[in-house]
Design a protein around this nucleic acid. Structure first.
Length: 561
RNA sequence: UGACCCAUGGUGUAAUGGUAACACAAAGGUUUUUGGUACCUUCGUUCUAGGUUCGAGUCCUAGUGGGUCAACCA
């Protein structure tokens, strides 16, 4: 799995920084990173980039990575999210160092840090309302004004802070602010709020606390407490870095350093926990793990392999430039991996019956068919063949163009792993639709022992009618019709939801092998795409998700016209 | 009209002062018992203008364009 710098010789800037630090003996060459999610939602593909980066560089340089939950806002965080995050990180193939950690583990320590700041005259209690504080902050182009509470004595501040902790004041009555610089061009340095009152139940500390540190007073300190060497985060925290450094410096604690990289954007996709939550809450999707969601759990259910996501994260690179990755790269990565590992099976999605008129009634052959041409060790399986089979309705045309390599009256076609068929005619219903196709087969054209000398340009997949296993198949299309659903000022991203993002096929005929399909096994339905068993499946009913189609040169050609 | 950051094919990422490379996408072709896979070919005035240098995508200056920041969110 450390396919990081083994397959990719190019180093990104984070790796260069680490190599430089190792070369100069910083932290004795020790590398410790961390992945710090807030447990307020499910992880998505954007987090996968961060996970692969943080765990990846640690692996490359012989270091470790902590999993630390940034749980300083009790009103938004839940154990459900903690559990899902752990599961997703593990599924992606990464192992964090020791036990999972929590910013809330450090609430006691953080409280002491705050008191030190107060004692040093570097923090004060402010009784102003949120609105007043916002007003006093000024704007990026206009300096802020000092708070009327700026000059409280150390004793008074200490007393007030202890009484805040003791629960004497209601939410919002007071905050603790760092004393930095109300005229700083960096808004984050204008006496940032570092502690606030929230009489809320915390998912881990319960009711032990009613004051909670803000992100800026928890994150860097948590890094420092854990002796994180490289604290890697996304670009939007860049303006926080001076405050990150200020806290560490004034608290005189371990000097973790923050480095920022550009977050992942994928076209036709949203990567915002808040927006994804709304999709779930408003019922646009069934759940966080709906296969149309760009969440790790959704992609897992959809049939993405962990390796495909890791490879994707490796291919997109790491830089400081805003970027939009083409969703087709993600599809390429999943096809690339699944092509190597998926078992080939046959399933007919949109069936029409073929009767092979010269094949004896009641005769049955078990044909041995290879499981994966890309993998010699994948072995073979037996597939029953009989007089009546299903093929795709699309694979027959009454008046085919000359470039159509499939079945048409008077034409030949190879059945995968079986015989060459010659089409004799069709039966239609009252509406003029083809109801049955009649063929003869070349008796000496059996796959692997073909002595017929007959040529067939196309090869079709098929399923024997009496042996067919029924299944439901769910076909997915992109969830949004617009390349940048969240990028329009005048429109909501929900305005671009694709009404046809899910298409359910109720009756698909599968070869009998699929009766024993398991969740987590990757299949290629021959010529149709990659599929996995969905978790909605039961003893009575098989449900498959289409992960992604195969590349289709024929369909592409058709579209061009 | 403040601070900080960024600018290389359609999309990403390299090139660390010395021939602009790799991948995806697109288009064309070869092979094929998956119209899949594999393989081959095509696709760039490195944002602009000055400067430094024998030599600049790279360094400097200015401009232009884009991003982030004014939550008691993270």
């Amino acid at each position: 799995m450390s396919d990081n710098t083994t397959t990719r010789e190019r180093k990104h800037f984070i790796e260069e920084i680490i190599e430089e630090d190792i070369a100069t003996g910083k932290h004795d060459g020790r590398v410790l990173t961390r992945f710090p999610p807030e447990p307020n939602g499910y992880l998505h593909i954007g987090h996968a980039k961060s996970i692969c980066l943080n765990f990846g560089v640690a692996q490359t340089y012989g270091g470790k990575t902590n999993l630390r939950f940034d749980d300083t806002n009790p009103t938004k965080e839940k154990t459900e999210y903690v559990d899902s995050i752990k599961r997703d990180v593990q599924w992606l193939g990464f192992e964090w160092d020791g036990e999972a950690k929590y910013a809330s583990d450090y609430f006691g320590q953080l409280y002491e840090f705050a008191k030190k700041l107060i004692r040093d005259g570097k923090a004060y209690i402010d009784d102003s309302t949120a609105e007043e504080i916002a007003e006093m902050k000024g704007t990026p182009t206009r300096a802020g004004t000092p708070s009327p509470y700026y000059s409280r004595t150390v004793e008074e501040n200490l007393d007030l802070f202890e009484r805040m902790k003791a629960g004497e004041f209601p939410d919002g009555a007071k905050v603790l602010r760092a004393k930095i610089d109300m005229a700083s061009p960096n808004m984050h340095m204008r006496d940032p709020v570092i502690y606030r009152i929230k009489h809320a139940h915390h998912h881990r500390t319960g009711d032990a606390w009613c004051i909670y540190p803000m992100y800026d007073f928890a994150h860097g300190q948590s890094d420092s407490i854990e002796k994180i060497t490289h604290s890697i985060c996304t670009l939007e925290f860049e303006n926080h870095r001076p405050l990150y450094d200020w806290c560490i410096e004034n608290l005189e604690i371990f000097p973790s350093k923050q480095y920022e990289f550009a977050r992942l954007n994928v076209n036709y996709t949203i990567t915002s926990k808040r927006k994804l939550l709304k999709l779930v809450e408003d019922g646009h999707v069934t759940a966080w793990d709906d296969p149309r969601m760009p969440t790790i759990s959704g992609m897992r259910r959809r049939g993405y392999s962990p390796a495909s996501i890791r490879n994707f994260c490796d291919k997109i690179g790491v830089a400081r430039r805003e970027n939009v990755i083409d969703v087709s790269l993600l599809e390429f990565c999943v096809r690339e991996d699944l092509n190597k590992i998926a078992s080939r099976v046959m399933a007919v999605l949109n069936p029409v019956k073929v009767v092979i008129t010269n094949y004896p009634e009641g005769q049955l052959e078990q044909l041995e068919i290879g499981n994966n041409p890309e993998d010699e060790n994948a072995g073979t399986r037996q597939v029953p063949f009989s007089r009546e089979i299903y093929i795709e309705r699309d694979d027959f045309m009454e008046n085919p163009p000359k470039k159509f390599f499939r079945l048409g009256i008077g034409r030949n076609v190879r059945l995968k792993g079986a015989y060459i068929l010659h089409c004799e005619g069709v039966k239609k219903n009252a509406e003029g639709e083809v109801e049955e196709i009649y063929c003869t087969y070349y008796t000496d054209s059996k796959s692997g022992q073909d002595t017929s000398g007959v040529r067939a340009k196309g090869t079709l997949h098929w399923v024997s009618v009496p042996h067919a296993v029924e299944a439901e198949v769910r076909l997915y299309d992109r969830l949004f019709l617009d390349e940048s659903p969240a990028g329009h000022e005048d429109k909501e991203y929900t305005d671009f939801i694709n009404p046809n993002s899910l298409k359910v096929l109720d009756t698909v005929y599968c070869e009998p092998h699929l009766k024993d399909a398991q969740v987590g096994t990757y299949y290629q339905f021959l010529r149709k795409g990659y599929f996995v068993l969905d978790t909605d499946s039961s003893e009575e009913k098989l449900v498959f998700n289409r992960t992604v189609t195969l590349r289709d040169g024929w369909a592409k050609k058709g579209k061009k016209k």
